[in-house]
């Protein structure tokens, strides 16, 4: 009876999965560039960023078309409005990955402790992004809720890194600029965690109709 609408929703779902995959790809590239000395990974990042922006436009257009043509209600309305909100967060994740990529060449001499913590933090925030996309694909409310609570882990890493950087600046003031850059990278990963949290909250809304207050 509504096969055309269902087909269009399936396309929307596919596009969302692809955009999610692009976000995972861009931050895993950033992580590799951070871990390995191989800076070739940095080259692919801006291409992935452009691809994410293009995807955002495509999905936005599709959602507006669906709102206009189908005047969706109930679960359909929640799915489409959540998609519109989620792509903004996905696009921001892409931007922040690009921001990190820009800084990486300037933080060659990282203090060991902060470096280890940063890797852990990066892995934790990337997992949040992967899980939020999986939660969307599987309509998995429990996984989405786990993403929301995992944000505390990323926030804790950020605090630890901040303390470490303060110590580093005190003991080694001449490398202050590098330390600040490192703090910015940590902040970007912290923001990526926040965006993954937003995505997860919209997944919960899309499935249950309840969005977290505040």
């Amino acid at each position: 009876m509504r096969s055309r609408f269902d087909e269009q929703l399936a396309i929307l779902n596919k596009e969302m999965i692809e955009m999610g995959a692009l976000c995972e790809e861009i931050i895993s590239k950033v992580l590799k560039a951070l871990t390995d000395e191989d800076k070739d990974f940095l080259n692919g990042i801006s291409t992935a960023g452009t691809e994410i922006d293009r995807k955002e436009r495509t999905i936005e257009t599709l959602c507006l078309k669906l709102l206009l043509q189908q005047q969706p209600v109930a679960k359909d309305l929640r799915q489409i409005s959540s998609a519109l909100k989620m792509i903004t967060d996905m696009e921001r994740i892409g931007d922040q990955a690009e921001d990190i990529a820009e800084i990486i060449p300037f933080v060659e001499n990282r203090p060991e402790m902060a470096d280890t913590l940063l890797h852990e933090m990066a892995k934790a925030s990337i997992k949040m992004v992967t899980d939020s996309v999986d939660a969307f694909v599987e309509h998995d409310v429990e996984l989405a809720k786990k993403v929301v609570s995992d944000d505390d882990i990323v926030d804790k890493y950020f605090d630890l890194i901040k303390q470490e950087i303060i110590r580093e600046i005190i003991s080694n003031p001449k490398d202050g600029e590098c330390s600040i850059d490192l703090l910015m990278i940590a902040k970007y990963f912290e923001r990526i965690g926040d965006h993954a949290t937003n995505i997860a909250e919209w997944v919960v809304f899309s499935v249950t109709g309840i969005h977290k207050e505040g």
């Binding site: 209600v73 929640r78 249950t208 109709g209 309840i210």
Partner: peptide
């Protein structure tokens, strides 16, 4: 009712499934 219907029959009707 139109954003989060409680009954599946309502959901199916308003979304045009029957």
């Amino acid at each position: 009712l139109f954003s989060t219907p409680k009954d599946k029959r309502t959901e199916d009707y308003i979304t045009g499934r029957f």
